[in-house]
Design a protein around this nucleic acid. Structure first.
Lengths: 239, 239
DNA sequence: CGCTCATTTGAGGAACTTCAAGGTCAGTGG
DNA sequence: CCACTGACCTTGAAGTTCCTCAAATGAGCG
C-alpha cells in the first residue's frame, strides 16, 4: 500500500504553507471573518507538513480510524465515501487542488480516497487545533473552511432532491465553476464516481449526458472533456 | 406580519446565554477544539439577544437578504428552504430547540421559516464575529457549530442517495435521536415539510410510513406520534 | 494485436410520481 | 351538542422515470 512512511521537508513545508494559505484566502473572507493574512501565514509555517502521492482508488484514510491528520489536495481529485454493508457506496464529496479534506471529523466518519492519481499534503490536526486556540486568525480560517464546505454540502443536498436531468446538469455546472472553466468541463473522475456521488447508476448518468449531447447542450472533446453551452445547461437546472 | 419590532430583556438575555451555551457545549467538544467554558459563557453574555414568536409557516428571514442576525431556536421547529421558480421547494434542514440557524450564510442563500409555531432568539452577527476575533473560545465554539452542521448535511446527502424506504427510516431514526426519544418519534413538522426535505411526494412518504406500520415496525400513538421498534427500524436503513 | 477496464445502448420491470377521491381531526359557530 | 370548515393525511389507479440485466462498443496499454 502506498502512503506509508510520512516524509516532510523544508521545501514541502514552504510550498504547502503558501498553498494552504492561498486556498484558504477566499474561503476565509467568505465566512465574514476578518482574517489577518500575516498572522495566519506565520502561524501555519510553524506546522509540520508532509506530502504523499496516491494512485487512483487508493485509500488515504479509512472509515472509522482516528483522524490525526487533515489533508490538502495538491494535485488530482480526492473523494470521501461512505461504504455500505451490501456493497453499495455513496461518494459524499469531491476535493480539487487547494481544497482541505478531513477537518470535519475527529474520527473519520467517511473514508478518504484518491479519485484519480493525486498528490496530497497533510497537517497534524493537534498542531492546528492548538494553534487555533492561541490564534483567532487560524481559528477564523478553519471556520471559513467549515462554513464553505457546509454551504457546498447543502447545495448538494438540494441537488439530490432534483430529477436526474437537472441533477447531472447542476453537477456539471458546479464542476466547471470549481475548475475555473465554465465552457469546457473536464470530468476529472470516473463516471462510476460521479454516479455514486449523484445517487444514480452509471448507465443513467451516461444516458443523461448523451441526452444533453443530442440536443446540442454539450459536445465531446476527447475522452472525459465536455464543451458545454453554459446558458442552456443552466436552464436545465431550473426548467 | 409577526416578527417586526425586536424586543430584548434582561430575562431573555440570561436564559438565552445559558441555552446557547448548553446547546453548544457538546458540539464544541465534538470538534476537537478545547473550549474554555467560563470564557465563552462570559463572552456570550456581552451579546445582545432578542426573542420573537413565529406562527407556523411564517418567514423568519428571506432568501437573498443580508444575514445580520443568526438565530437560536428556543421552542418549536425551524426549517431552511430553497424555493424554485416553477413552484417546487426543497427543505434543506430542520432545526430543533437549542440549534443555531443561519451561521453559514453571510447573505442567506436559503429562506428561514417556522415549520411549527416557534420561539426564536437572535444574535447580531457582527457582535459575534468581532467577539470571535478577540476570543478563540468563541471562535472554537462557532467552528464547533459549523462542523456539527457540516456532518449533519453530509449525512443527509448520503440519506438522499438511498431508496425511499431506508430514506424515511433513516430520517425517523435521526429525528428520534435529536429529540432524545429513540422509541417514540413525534413528527414535529407536517408531512409536506418532511417530504420536501427527503425529496419525495407527500403521498410516497405516507405510503412508506403505512408500510412500516403494516409490518409492525412503527405504530401510531395519536396524531403525529410514532412508537418505533428502534432495532428493526435501523435494519431498514442497511437492509 | 489482444487484453482489460470504462462507457454506451437496448429491453423489460420495479419504484416513484401524478391525478383524483376519500378520510380524519381540531377548531368554530349555530 | 352537532354540523361545518379547512388543513392535513391516506388510498387507489394510471403513467413516467429510473433501475436491472445483458450485451456491444470504445479507449488505453503491453
Amino acid at each position: 500500500v502506498q502512503g506509508v512512511g510520512l516524509r516532510s521537508s523544508k521545501v514541502a513545508l514552504a510550498q504547502s504553507t503558501n498553498q494552504v494559505f492561498d486556498a484558504i484566502n477566499n474561503i476565509g473572507s467568505a465566512s465574514g471573518q476578518v482574517v489577518d493574512h500575516r498572522t495566519v501565514k506565520k502561524a501555519l509555517s510553524s506546522l509540520h507538513f508532509g506530502t504523499i502521492r496516491y494512485r487512483q482508488n487508493h485509500v488515504i484514510a479509512c472509515e472509522g480510524e482516528a483522524a490525526d491528520y487533515i489533508f490538502v489536495v495538491a494535485r488530482g481529485v480526492v473523494r470521501t465515501c461512505k461504504n455500505f454493508e451490501r456493497g453499495g457506496r455513496s461518494v459524499v464529496a469531491f476535493y480539487l487542488p487547494g481544497d482541505i479534506v478531513g477537518w470535519s471529523e475527529q474520527n473519520h466518519s467517511l473514508s478518504v480516497e484518491a479519485a484519480s492519481d493525486a498528490v496530497v499534503r497533510f497537517v497534524k490536526r493537534s498542531a492546528l487545533t492548538s494553534l487555533a486556540v492561541r490564534d483567532s486568525g487560524v481559528s477564523g480560517l478553519l471556520l471559513g473552511i467549515a462554513t464553505s464546505q457546509l454551504r457546498r454540502a447543502q447545495e448538494h443536498a438540494v441537488r439530490m432532491s432534483m430529477r436526474t436531468k437537472p441533477r447531472v446538469a447542476s453537477f456539471l455546472i458546479d464542476l466547471g465553476r470549481r475548475s475555473g472553466t465554465a465552457n469546457s468541463v473536464k470530468l476529472l473522475m470516473s463516471h462510476q464516481d460521479i454516479a455514486d456521488h449523484l445517487g444514480l447508476r452509471r448507465e443513467t448518468l451516461s444516458r443523461r449526458i448523451t441526452q444533453l449531447q443530442r440536443v446540442g447542450i454539450v459536445s465531446r472533446s476527447g475522452t472525459r472533456t465536455l464543451i458545454v453551452d453554459y446558458e442552456r445547461l443552466l436552464r436545465q437546472v431550473n426548467p
